[in-house]
Structures are given as structure tokens and as C-alpha cells.
Simulated assay, not measured.
Amino acid sequence: MDQSWDFRLREELIRELGAILKIYMGLENIKVPRNAHQGHQAALHVFADASKQAFGVASYMVTIEGKCQLLTAMARVTPKRMLELDESQSIPKLVLNALLFGCRLAQYLIELRPETYVSTTVWFDASTALQWVHSRQSTSPYVLNRVEEINRIRLKCLLLLKHVPTSCNPADLASRGVAAKVVLKSNLWLHGPAWLIDVSACPNQSIFPTEWEIKACPIRLLPP
């Protein structure tokens, strides 16, 4: 747009800007406690998701006292080149990138406080990407390179990879984008799924952990 700094925006741009600003109204009312660590051991849960708009991740700490708190979350705009792929290929690859994004975040948090987390689980809602990670049978160099890094982090940090229903995945909010007023009222976003601290409500696990995962890093949902 080749215009001077004080030119008047076109009406359609003014309306578009107004709609964007409306989405962020109330953002200042969202409060997330900063003092997350009280010296107790905890379980770390990282959720990952992807859409045509963005990759999203959100991490939560569950203490032995039964408190669940949002630690950190972020989103990254989906690369344009990935949107040009056939949808049957692009969606699984988007989710694979989101999974890698989540594993990197988990590694960062573990290395930041290695004495804190007794177990770490990365959750996402696409079975195709999980099958790629477990089988390592894809013929695509793009997929294999990312699977190699995911497995390297998984072995180093003893991560469990688990499937979660989309309705229980807080990273879905980050990947598709929601208004600030939705985030403000969302317990899913601020505190994670209720079953993180209630084992009896945990969704059935249809996706397998490997024998190595069961022995090396059993999932431990800490009691309330």
C-alpha cells in the first residue's frame, strides 16, 4: 500500500480494523497467576493442535494437591506453503508440526525446572500423526525429519504422547483463534480439562503407548 502516513483508510479497511479490535476487547481482564511453582513436584501436560490458521500449544502444571494451572501458551501462523498442499496431506502434516511444537515446549519447560516434573504428557487429537511417530514408516522426508526430532525429544525427556478428543483440547482455541471474551470464560483454557486432576473422568485411551513408554514413563495423573 503506497500511501502517505496520514492518508484516510478506506471504509472497508476501517470496518475490518473495527472487527479485529472487537475481538480483543476484554483482553486486559484475563489474569493468569505468575507464581506457578511452589516447590512441589507436579505433572506436566502439553496440548498441541493445528488448523489452517495456526499451530497452537498450551501447557499445564498439575500439583499433588490437585491444582491445575496454565503455564504458558503460544500460537504460530500456519506457513502459506502448507496451505497449498492437497488437504489430505496438509492437515496431517500441520498436526505433525504442532506435535513437534508441543514437544519442543515440553523440553524447554523440563530443562527450565528439571526437578519439578514427575511425568510429562503431550496430548493432541490426530491419530495419523501419532501413527507416523510410532511406526516411522512414512516415505516422505518432510515427515521423517520431524518424526526423528519428535522421537529424539521423546526419548531424552521421557515424554508420553497421547490422543485427546478435540472437545477436550485447549490448544484448539489457540490454533483456530477465539475472542478475548471466550477465553475469559473458558475453564478449559485457563485450567485445562477437568480430568487432569480427576482420574476417573480421563477419556479412554484408544491410542497405544509403546512398551518402552509404559516402562520408562508411566502416566501419573496425580490425586487431588
Rank of each mutant, 00 (worst) to 15 (best):
94 L>C: 06
128 T>K: 02
180 A>N: 04
146 R>H: 06
165 P>I: 02
179 A>F: 02
134 H>A: 14
155 L>S: 15
81 R>W: 13
100 L>W: 00
116 T>N: 07
99 L>I: 12
171 A>W: 00
160 L>W: 04
198 D>R: 14
84 E>N: 13
111 E>P: 02
88 S>Q: 11
86 D>P: 00
158 L>Y: 12
123 W>H: 04
80 K>Q: 14
168 C>A: 12
153 I>M: 14
152 R>M: 13
190 L>P: 05
180 A>W: 01
70 L>S: 05
165 P>C: 01
113 R>A: 08
95 V>I: 08
149 E>W: 13
188 L>S: 06
127 S>R: 15
74 M>A: 12
170 P>C: 08
76 R>W: 09
137 Q>P: 11
123 W>E: 05
196 L>M: 06
81 R>H: 11
152 R>V: 10
65 E>I: 12
129 A>P: 02
112 L>F: 10
96 L>A: 03
68 C>S: 08
69 Q>L: 11
150 I>R: 01
92 P>E: 06
93 K>F: 10
198 D>K: 13
195 W>L: 02
129 A>T: 04
168 C>G: 09
69 Q>H: 08
196 L>I: 09
170 P>L: 07
125 D>K: 07
186 S>K: 01
126 A>R: 10
146 R>V: 02
63 T>C: 04
106 A>I: 00
161 L>Q: 00
132 W>T: 08
157 C>P: 10
120 T>A: 08
191 H>T: 12
168 C>W: 04
182 V>W: 02
94 L>F: 08
143 V>F: 03
163 H>E: 05
80 K>R: 13
168 C>F: 10
182 V>Q: 06
84 E>V: 09
179 A>G: 01
154 R>Y: 06
195 W>D: 00
91 I>A: 06
132 W>F: 13
195 W>E: 02
178 V>S: 06
87 E>I: 14
168 C>V: 00
139 T>L: 14
86 D>T: 11
70 L>V: 04
198 D>F: 11
93 K>N: 13
88 S>W: 08
97 N>W: 03
136 R>N: 10
113 R>Y: 10
86 D>Q: 13
76 R>A: 15
136 R>S: 11
